[in-house]
């Protein structure tokens, strides 16, 4: 039974890698499930057992990358000694390193996801969950160790970091410098910013400010609305109406 599950996993990976090859060469639109099945050396019907649609293949690979990243991070023996900035930076760098052989494929993922934002959003949800789970882990550990102060709105931070990662990837896809040297610099330098934001609890403070402004200004407008509702002649008119006069 166990061997069976292992075999299944191997076949799954083989199909995903075949999908990357075919889609990279042909483009997402022109690639067919049949070609991918052939490349992966599985039957035309078998492939549908694993991935019912081409989209599932596309995003299945994104999830697979995150699993690889997780494994690689676990391989680093002194990873727990890294500062939270180093851990997050390692996460970003490892993501790019694992993506590197499939960079052109990633280009397609970006094009398709941005062309249909809503569909893209649902399809990418699992990848995002895997990624943000790692970020949550790192942040929790850092807070627990007293490395950074407890972060208000902590559930928001990993999602913001996901957006940051997306931005970095977009930059990387456009980067033409040798060895993507510019991307390395952008990451290294922006991570210092991220570390500062965490250190200062900046996101929390910004949200506090927004919430203050909302309460003071928007809510006070609500008050004037209430006043309007309860204005004496309006109230009288309403009473008259209700009483059928």
């Amino acid at each position: 039974m166990k061997i069976n599950a292992q075999d299944q996993q191997l076949t799954r990976v083989r199909i995903l890698e075949a999908a990357v090859d075919v889609i990279t060469i042909k483009g997402f639109k022109s690639a067919t499930m049949r070609e991918i099945a052939k490349q992966a050396q599985v039957g035309d019907a078998t492939i549908y057992n694993y991935f019912p649609t081409k989209e599932k293949l596309l995003y299945g690979y994104c999830e697979y990358v995150q699993q690889q990243v997780m494994l690689e991070l676990k391989e680093i023996s002194d990873f727990h000694e890294y500062s939270v900035q180093e851990q997050l930076q390692q996460l970003v760098e490892t993501n790019l390193r694992v993506w590197l052989p499939a960079r052109e494929f990633l280009q397609q993922v970006f094009e398709i996801s941005f062309a249909e934002p809503v569909a893209g959003f649902t399809n990418i949800a699992e990848t995002k969950r895997l990624f943000t789970a790692m970020v949550v882990d790192m942040l929790d550990a850092a807070v627990e160790a007293g490395e950074i102060p407890d972060q208000p709105y902590r559930e928001l931070l990993p999602r913001l970091f996901w957006d940051y990662m997306t931005g970095i990837m977009a930059y990387w896809l456009k980067d033409t410098s040798e060895g993507f040297a510019n991307t390395t610099q952008v990451i290294d330098r922006s991570m210092e910013l991220v570390a500062n934001i965490l250190q200062q609890g900046m996101v929390g403070k910004l949200l506090d400010l927004a919430s203050f402004l909302f309460r003071t200004h928007i809510m006070s407008h609500m008050d004037s609305l209430k006043n309007l509702y309860q204005a004496p002649d309006l109230a009288a008119a309403k009473r008259r109406f209700m009483e059928g006069k």
């Binding site: 391989e75 680093i76 023996s77 002194d78 890294y82 500062s83 900035q85 180093e86 930076q89 390692q90 760098e93 390193r97 060895g179 390395t184 290294d188």
Partner: peptide, 27 residues
């Protein structure tokens, strides 16, 4: 360079992280 960049530099050069190349490596 922080540990991430050191690791990246070594990996880019040799295709292996420092701990696989050296018996000990002070980060």
């Amino acid at each position: 360079l922080n540990r991430v960049l050191v690791r990246k530099a070594v990996q880019a050069q040799f295709g292996k992280p420092p701990e696989h190349l050296f018996a000990t490596f002070d980060s």
